[in-house]
């Protein structure tokens, strides 16, 4: 049984009907195959119509879809001989960030990503993909290891944000993120980042200072969640905010892969199967592998000095400013 989002409800009805007919055709003698085919075609059309016109808020919901593949799902589909490595060697092993080494289409890579967890028990264990400082410190430890052994780094971004908790503040959440930003900007090995779901602010950025930054077609990346933004803007005087405000905030913030590609904040958009990554995880994984391998091949041949220099230049260009002609 698939999980349908609100705007997919018409599709749900149709697909239920198809399921029922299929069961019927298995048991009865009447041939309704042509009828099923017709309905399947109709469902495909409906789906492409719905997905051709998604609002940024709808994309946010797809990016957070409970059936959407997570980091570990992709690792299982993409990486051979993967060995997960644990712990920051200082405080704990943060289950909200996973990392390790394995072979991606024959290339040894260090892979690190946020992990949200499926089902209530695992979600709690993984803190809903919200890392504590030790998660970022584990990530940096693994990245330095990758640097020493000249392995490319691949990161998967999928978090609502870094965890806002007492312990996180006590152990230096801000410092952990800041250090990752500083160190990733000068790591001596290629870094490829892919936003696979939700890119939640600083907690996402701390794994995505990269030579190539890709986003899946229906993923989002934002400085603040649409809900957070809506609360700041419209929750004054105790007024309730809901879906309408989230729609407005999500549009205003320009958080979709398409918006961010047009701003040149990301390099490219990795296509998803119709209906979203969860409709065909294998195909999505293959698309992702394709983009990563291509990126490693183009970047991999650059000398280290040039690599770091170009990474700095990429970051240096970030921003949207003007300076009047009179100065300098």
């Amino acid at each position: 049984m698939n999980y349908y989002l609100d705007f997919e409800k018409p599709l749900e009805e149709l697909e239920r009907k198809i399921e029922d007919l299929k069961k019927l055709s298995d048991t009865s003698e009447i041939n309704i195959d042509s009828e099923i085919k017709k309905l399947e075609k109709k469902a495909d059309e409906l789906r492409s119509n719905i997905f051709a016109d998604l609002t940024p808020w709808q994309k946010t919901l797809i990016a957070r879809h409970p059936e959407r593949p997570y980091t570990i799902d992709y690792i299982n589909m993409m990486v051979d001989e993967f060995v997960e490595l644990h712990g920051d060697r200082r405080f704990a092993d943060d289950a909200a960030i996973v990392g390790g080494i394995g072979k991606l289409r024959g290339i040894p890579v260090v892979i690190i990503g946020h992990q949200k967890g499926r089902g209530t028990k695992e979600r709690i264990q993984r803190n809903f993909g919200q890392p504590n400082p030790e998660g970022y410190r584990k990530a940096l430890r693994l990245m330095k290891l990758a640097e020493r052994f000249k392995k490319p780094i691949v990161t998967f971004i999928d978090t609502p944000g870094a965890y806002p908790g007492i312990g996180a503040e006590e152990r230096g959440q801000a410092e952990a993120i800041a250090i990752n930003l500083q160190e990733m900007s000068k790591l001596n090995t290629p870094i490829i980042s892919v936003v696979i779901g939700e890119g939640g602010s600083g907690g996402a950025l701390a794994l995505s200072v990269a030579d190539r930054l890709f986003m899946l077609e229906h993923s989002v990346y934002s400085v603040i969640s649409p809900e957070g933004c809506a609360a700041i803007l419209w929750k004054r005087d105790g007024a309730a905010v809901g879906a309408a405000e989230y729609e407005k905030a999500a549009s205003a913030l320009k958080i979709t892969a398409q918006d961010l590609k047009s701003f040149k904040i990301i390099d490219d958009i990795i296509p998803e199967p119709l209906g979203g990554a969860h409709r065909n995880p294998k195909l999505t994984a293959e698309n992702i592998s394709e983009y990563i391998v291509k990126a490693i091949e183009t970047i991999g041949c650059k000398s280290c000095a040039k690599l770091i220099d170009e990474r700095y230049k990429r970051l240096r260009k970030m921003g949207s400013i003007t300076q009047s002609e009179t100065s300098e």
Binding site: S201, L205, M318
Partner: peptide, 18 residues
């Protein structure tokens, strides 16, 4: 970070840290 500049603001963190 300044919400009104969206991801441009977030990227300032990486730029300044670098």
């Amino acid at each position: 970070a300044r919400m009104q500049e969206g991801m441009f603001s977030l990227m300032q963190m990486a730029k300044a840290s670098a």
